[in-house]
Amino acid sequence: MKNFTTRLFILLQHLLPQHLLSRLVGHLAASHTFWLKNLFINWFVRQYDIDMSQAQEERPTAYRCFNDFFTRELKPGIRPIDSTPGSIVSPADGAISQLGDIDYGRIFQAKGRSYSLTALLGGDSKAAAAFVNGQFATVYLSPRDYHRVHMPLDGTLTRTIYVPGDLFSVNQTTAEGVEHLFSRNERLVAFFDTELGPMAMVMVGAMIVAGIETVWSGIEAPRQKQPVNKLYNQTPEVVVLKKGEEMGRFYLGSTVILLFGPNVMQWQTELSANSPVMLGQQLGTAQQNTV
């Protein structure tokens, strides 16, 4: 019965009009209609057992719309950022989907499935070359999690690539059932220069995700669903973000993938698939010869 239910869940995702459904939910999530947004928010709090005591604004119905509630700010200091020298911290609350080596340009997805590093980065083989045989970590944000994304270490933004694509769910069931999931879904790739060399943060869209936003550019969703490249290392205003500072947010949940080059860092040995993580928690450590 479980296998049938799983196959049906995957089949429905193939059949549903993913982008139309996401746009409709996006309009609902942005509505300021008092009774509608309160109905949506209160249902969500009950359905996912949201702990509002951690939020800066604890009253669910005080938010102007569902999007504001979903991307709610946490109380100051409630997520301490690990300050160990050379530490690399979790960019979000969530759970590790997978982490480990980028083997010859392939990234492990789930249960024997892997996908191309180059495809993940929008087909840019030159950008991908910096991460071949490096390290990756995939962090899944569930609906009940805090949905702002923060920097795992200090970085200077150099470039972004918006990559249009599908909008499959990104939970574990779909990761196990959909080939090349993360390299086929809509996503924003942000490249940073760091003390460890190049780092990429890939914000992956998903079913009913109504938007991906960055602190430097706002909503990243061009009307024309074509790849969009933006260079930031040649602009007058350089974007420099410190470890723990917000870099973006999801309007409904999704996944963040971190990429590092070879021989510059290592993940904490106790972390594995399905390990719960929290923003600011140490995920890895820079190798001593790189700091």
Rank of each mutant, 00 (worst) to 15 (best):
F191G: 00
M207G: 05
E245I: 09
Y115I: 00
I96E: 12
K126H: 02
Q281G: 07
L259C: 02
I50K: 04
T138Q: 08
R59E: 06
L231G: 02
V149R: 08
H147Q: 01
G165Y: 11
A190V: 11
G280H: 13
V277G: 05
Y104F: 10
S116V: 00
P222R: 10
L258P: 00
T6I: 15
R46Y: 08
V291L: 15
T84I: 03
I257R: 07
D68E: 14
R148K: 02
V239L: 07
W35L: 11
A130F: 00
V202M: 06
A200G: 07
R23A: 08
P91S: 10
E58F: 10
V291Q: 15
L99T: 01
H32I: 12
A221C: 08
A55K: 07
R106N: 10
T269A: 13
K75P: 03
S142P: 03
P152D: 14
P91G: 11
A110S: 14
A92F: 07
A206H: 15
P276A: 14
N263Y: 08
G134K: 00
L99M: 06
G100D: 11
Y115F: 13
S90H: 04
N289R: 15
V189H: 07
L153S: 02
N67F: 13
H27S: 04
M151V: 08
A95N: 04
